[in-house]
């Protein structure tokens, strides 16, 4: 591997380290504490899981704009069933995950069988689901959930970090494995990069796109369960604030580790790079609007960077031809 490729791969890691060092110098007493590190790692696992789910349809070149609403739906269903209806935790979680999967399968069916554009379908289904969440919750925050869930998600700690972080890490490993080391992952990549090639090579293009959208629905449901456990309840509008950060992290992550590909480790690094920057700025006393500046700016920057990489590659091609 030459230096240039390595530089591209780990540029984001480098930027992350620079940000960490910078804030450690600026705010040694609040930023550079183990409590802060533990907080950062634990608090962003929900976003990480959501981003990992999003990577699946992005790899097959489909959008999923419904993930944030699905997160809200799953959290709300879990809170209502467990907190208000008194269902035991396990069946309530299964139903919550099932809701996520169902929305994902609906998206997949519209995109694959009806041949609709995923951007429009998921924009519509996401808004629809947000309406359902408001309806079933009566626009209120629902609490009163079993403490067992919160115990297993945030209160229990390993090396001082909430368990939820390790769940996210485990999912990173699984997704990394699936996308890199399985035939399905390879095929998904071909479906995303060259539909026509994939079809003429005999791949089940429709089934793969359907599975990717169903998968992102399921993982958004899982993110909802983790969210309910983290906050001890659910509020109808909570998910909306996750949509843009998830896209920002997915695109920014695609510039790292395996540049040009949406990948799990890249998403992991991007999620924590972004939250490190935001936390540091907030500790410096900057207002909370910085979060929006940071995520919005990161998304545009990430897309611009990947475009730049692609254009450079295209330039090389033109020279070689």
């Amino acid at each position: 591997m030459n230096a240039k490729v390595a530089a591209q791969r780990y540029a984001l890691v480098g930027a992350w380290i620079v940000v960490i060092v910078l804030f450690c110098i600026l705010k040694p007493d609040t930023f550079a504490t183990s409590a802060n590190v533990q907080n950062i790692l634990g608090s962003q696992a929900v976003l990480l899981v959501l981003t990992l789910g999003l990577i699946l349809p992005l790899t097959s070149n489909d959008f999923d704009l419904s993930i944030a609403s699905v997160l809200s739906l799953s959290a709300m269903v879990l809170a209502l069933l467990n907190g208000e209806q008194g269902w035991p935790l396990l069946p309530a979680i299964i139903v919550a995950l099932g809701c996520g999967l169902a929305v994902g399968m609906f998206n997949g069916a519209c995109v694959v069988w009806l041949g609709l554009d995923s951007f429009i379908v998921t924009l519509g289904s996401g808004t629809f689901v947000a309406g359902v969440v408001t309806w079933i919750s009566g626009s209120r925050t629902v609490t009163g959930m079993s403490p067992v869930l919160s115990d297993w998600i945030v209160n229990k700690r390993l090396l001082g970090v909430s368990l939820v972080f390790y769940y996210g890490l485990a999912l990173v490993l699984i997704l990394w494995y699936v996308l890199t080391y399985t035939a399905v992952g390879r095929r998904l990549l071909f479906v995303g990069r060259g539909r026509s090639v994939a079809r003429l090579s005999g791949l089940r293009v429709g089934a793969l796109r359907f599975s990717a959208l169903a998968g992102s629905g399921l993982l958004a449901g899982l993110a909802g369960v983790l969210y309910a456990g983290t906050t001890g309840g659910a509020d109808p509008s909570s998910g909306a604030s996750f949509l843009l950060p998830a896209f920002a992290a997915a695109y920014l992550g695609a510039t790292a580790v395996s540049p040009g590909r949406f990948n799990a480790w890249g998403a992991f690094i991007a999620v924590y790079f972004l939250v490190t920057g935001i936390t540091g700025l907030q500790l410096l006393g900057v207002d909370s609007f910085v979060q929006q500046l940071f995520y919005g700016g990161a998304l545009v920057l990430a897309v611009a960077l990947s475009q730049l990489v692609r254009r450079r590659a295209a330039g090389r091609e033109a020279v070689g031809a």
Binding site: R187, L189, F190, R193, G194, S196, V197, L200, G202, E317
Partner: peptide, 17 residues
Amino acid sequence: VDGSVGSLSVSDNAMLQ
């Protein structure tokens, strides 16, 4: 368009089948 994915490696393209 129909034969290959130019942005992937030679090995990825050759071994798909």
